[in-house]
Simulated scan of single mutants.
Amino acid sequence: MIASLGGVVTSSVRVGDDASTTADALGLTSAVGAPACHQRDLIVTTGGTGDSRADHVRALLRDAGADFLVDGVDVRPGGPALLARLPDGRLFVGLPGNPLAALLSVLTLVHPVLAGLQGLELPALRPAVLASPVDGVRSGTVLRPYRSVHDPDSATPHAEPTPWHGAAMLRGLADADGVLVCPGSGAAAGGLVPSLDLPW
């Protein structure tokens, strides 16, 4: 996905839910043999952005003196995502650990950051007519993958929201044509809502 958005992945490291190992991998310590994340424009992590005892990313960033530019997003799924600037100027995007939440956060945070670093414009939101309602959630915005469906009574394709929209579910995104951007209160069938094209 990073490559499809114009980025170049220079390294990839897997670490467990351990604060010290995570700090070493991010280059926040001077441990011997730690993978160097310096000389990078952007660091992207997945997981560890929540509030449990196994989630260390926010605390490590605070301890390192990072400036939180986006400390959580009022959206579901993907609320625990964050954007920060490290003291040495590197940008940092922390994605949630759940797969759908992480991938939708690529759209809402990683894509805009990479576009900005490359001097590119983001694609415009497109209007979509809902074929089925989208239920409300306790959040400012609902992101819902959808498939385009033909409505015999309309010349405009309609958007069928996926029923598989839990933060850990990838099935709905796997065959999606785009992502609906609905108000947290929900939206009725036949309503017009903004949508994002998938960049991959």
Rank of each mutant, 00 (worst) to 15 (best):
V73N: 01
G65V: 01
H165F: 13
R147T: 10
V129T: 15
P183S: 12
E121R: 15
E160W: 09
V13A: 10
D197W: 08
L173N: 04
A102V: 03
I43M: 06
L117I: 06
R126E: 13
P112W: 09
P123I: 08
V93C: 10
L60I: 00
D67W: 11
S185L: 13
A36N: 15
G7L: 07
L122Y: 11
L192Q: 13
S195W: 01
S4D: 13
A19M: 05
R126N: 11
T162S: 15
D18L: 04
R58Q: 10
L100F: 06
V8E: 14
R90D: 06
D18W: 12
A54Q: 14
G7Y: 04
G119V: 07
D24K: 05
C182E: 10
I2Q: 05
A84E: 05
G116Q: 12
A3F: 06
T46S: 15
V129C: 14
D17S: 08
L28V: 02
D18H: 11
S148N: 11
G166Q: 07
L61M: 09
L100D: 02
R138H: 14
G190C: 12
L109V: 10
L69W: 10
S12P: 08
G6V: 00
L100N: 00
V110E: 07
V110A: 08
A176C: 11
A176R: 02
H165P: 02
L198Q: 08
P145K: 01
L143H: 08
T22F: 01
G65M: 08
A81G: 13
